[in-house]
């Protein structure tokens, strides 16, 4: 019976396939897909973590958007941070990568320096920047003082607290630089040579060749950057506690406080679902990029 033996052969192989993938199938269901469904469910309930969740329909969402100004404020703060930090990181990262790419044999040294902050642990880095941002004795304002500039209160000012956290995030720009560098090295040098023969200068080369050729990499950095920045939490938790005047209360800090300090898990879930729905388009975009790459 050759037919049957082939079938059982495939069956056996299939079984091994499932067996090898089993850890991930469990992980995917328990730690990702299940929790997503559960978040949607919890967002329609009121739940204190002890008594069973009570269904209240769209009440949480109604409160979020009509009665709770702190949610819209947190959403605004998070967008401010996301777009501010990603825009500056990508812009500065691209400029530094282009410069590095021209640095010849010294490239390695500069790259080592620019990347170093990326590997440093977040909590010590935040303590360090709290010192640097100190309004009277901090290094930054003393430096500004040399030029006669009276530096802002940084983390103690509702206006400057977010720019301060964005400024700190720029210290971790090394990851983006390295990704851009890899992209730059993939641009054929003949393109530049041909344009130079036509008399193009360096600035024209940058805008007419480098930027268009890097467009996919720029796009990738922007999208992953936005999703990453939307998770901003520890900065506010450690450096500002969400203040002053809620100016650094980001969405994740709000979720954390509501869910684990005030145990309003239903309401906190509704916030997480709103954030999820806002970010899902970005996830879909990245999914398409990676699927194409996976197929070669």
């Amino acid at each position: 019976m050759p037919g049957k033996s082939i079938r059982s052969f495939w069956k056996r192989k299939s079984a091994i396939g499932y067996l090898f993938a089993a850890p991930w199938i469990i992980g995917l269901v328990c730690f990702i897909l299940g929790p997503i469904v559960a978040s949607f469910f919890l967002s329609f309930t009121t739940y204190d973590g002890i008594n069973p969740p009570k269904w209240i329909g769209f009440m949480n969402y109604k409160i979020l958007f009509t009665l709770d100004p702190s949610f819209l404020k947190a959403l605004g703060n998070t967008f401010y941070y996301m777009f501010g930090s990603v825009f500056l990181k990508v812009l500065l990262g691209l400029i530094l990568a282009v410069l590095l790419n021209n640095a010849g044999k010294f490239m390695g040294i500069f790259r080592t320096i620019f990347f170093l902050p990326v590997v440093l642990p977040a909590v010590p880095v935040m303590f360090l920047w709290m010192m640097l941002f100190n309004p009277t004795n901090g290094l930054i304002n003393q430096f500004l003082g040399i030029f006669g500039i009276n530096g802002p209160l940084w983390l103690n000012s509702p206006t400057w607290s977010k720019p301060a956290i964005i400024l700190m995030s720029l210290w971790g720009i090394g990851g983006i630089i390295v990704i851009f560098l890899a992209g730059l090295q993939g641009i054929p040098t003949e393109l530049y040579e041909a344009a130079e023969l036509d008399g193009a200068n360096k600035i024209q080369l940058f805008w007419k060749i480098t930027v268009p050729m890097l467009r996919p990499v720029i796009f990738f950095n922007v999208v992953t950057g936005l999703i990453g920045a939307s998770q901003v939490f520890a900065e506010a938790y450690i450096m500002t506690g969400g203040g002053p005047l809620e100016s650094t209360t980001f969405v994740n800090l709000m979720i954390y406080k509501l869910a684990f300090k005030d145990v309003q898990m239903g309401y906190a879930s509704a916030i997480s679902v709103v954030m999820f729905l806002i970010l899902v388009p970005l996830t879909i975009v990245l999914f398409r990029i990676y699927r194409r790459q996976a197929e070669f």
Binding site: F31, I32, P35, I36, A38, S39, L42, T224, I227, S230, Q231, V251, N252, I255, Y256, A259, M265, A268, S269, I271, S272, V273, M275, F276, L279, V280, L282, T283, L286, F287
Partner: peptide, 9 residues
């Protein structure tokens, strides 16, 4: 690239 906020609770 799932926004991980939705998984925490």
């Amino acid at each position: 690239f799932i926004p991980s906020q939705v998984l925490i609770i």
